[in-house]
Amino acid sequence: MLGLERAKDDWYPVAIAGSMGECESHTTRLLGFEITLHGGKNGAISVNFGETDLAVQVKFDHVWTTFCDNPRPLFDIPEGDEPGRVRVPCGVVRVKCSPLRAVENFLDIAHFPFVHTDILGAEPHTEVAPYDVKIDESKNEVIATKVKFFQPQAAKSAGDGIVTDYVYRVAAPMVSILYKTCPPKPEAQDVITLFVQPLDEETCDVWPWMALYDYENSMADMISFQQMIFVQDRSILENQIPRKLPLDPRMEIPTRADMTSIAYRRWLKRSGALYGALTEAV
């Protein structure tokens, strides 16, 4: 299968750290293979693939695993460790789409007025101003900066709607991180990420995580807000045809607003990160 070998070299989230009791176990899937998670002492979680113990690490409040003995290192989010932030794993949402479609949707702002109406966007404020996209060669990441968008309710503290600034990072083929204006603390930015567990090429579990300066809302409120947003995205993701992400430019027609998505698709192609992608036009 195209891209499977490369995909096996990466780390993937499979659980929230500390979410399993001692002796609890459950099976899930990763890249089409069945794996089993076991709860151990002090909230530790181990992962088996058949007879093999897989490498495990805990980062960003999630348990990450890999099939590879010498995996590509897991990316960093330095801002996430800053004191004063609330770190919130938001649970898991299963989506019947390619893991790459889920990441691409997360990078997209033009859908806010239509999919997250009156929350992250609203007509007539639909224009996407030009922004910068590049590949950071030293880190091998896609970076979009100076992204701006009008939001009616960027945060509960923002009354009338504000123009929100975003920076997007694609740190791995199935990981996207966004930094956005944080209303209570203008000099800092909220961090919201999408960690994707590829169950197979057309199904994924999405684990959103946030590291916010939010002094007002309870953890439960923040989780339910994020879950609501993601459930709206799911209604789109499960209705895109085809389910895999097309990399052939003849298949779908982008515009300037889609520069991040264009760069993401090119970067996937040149990296050979083809798991969940469609390389030929159909």
Partner: peptide, 20 residues
């Protein structure tokens, strides 16, 4: 529904909200 592109009854795209 996704990005609000409009298509007329001839099927031709006549409006892209991201670029009004």
């Amino acid at each position: 529904l996704y990005h609000g592109w409009h298509y007329g009854s001839d099927g031709v795209c006549n409006y892209i909200p991201a670029h009004p």
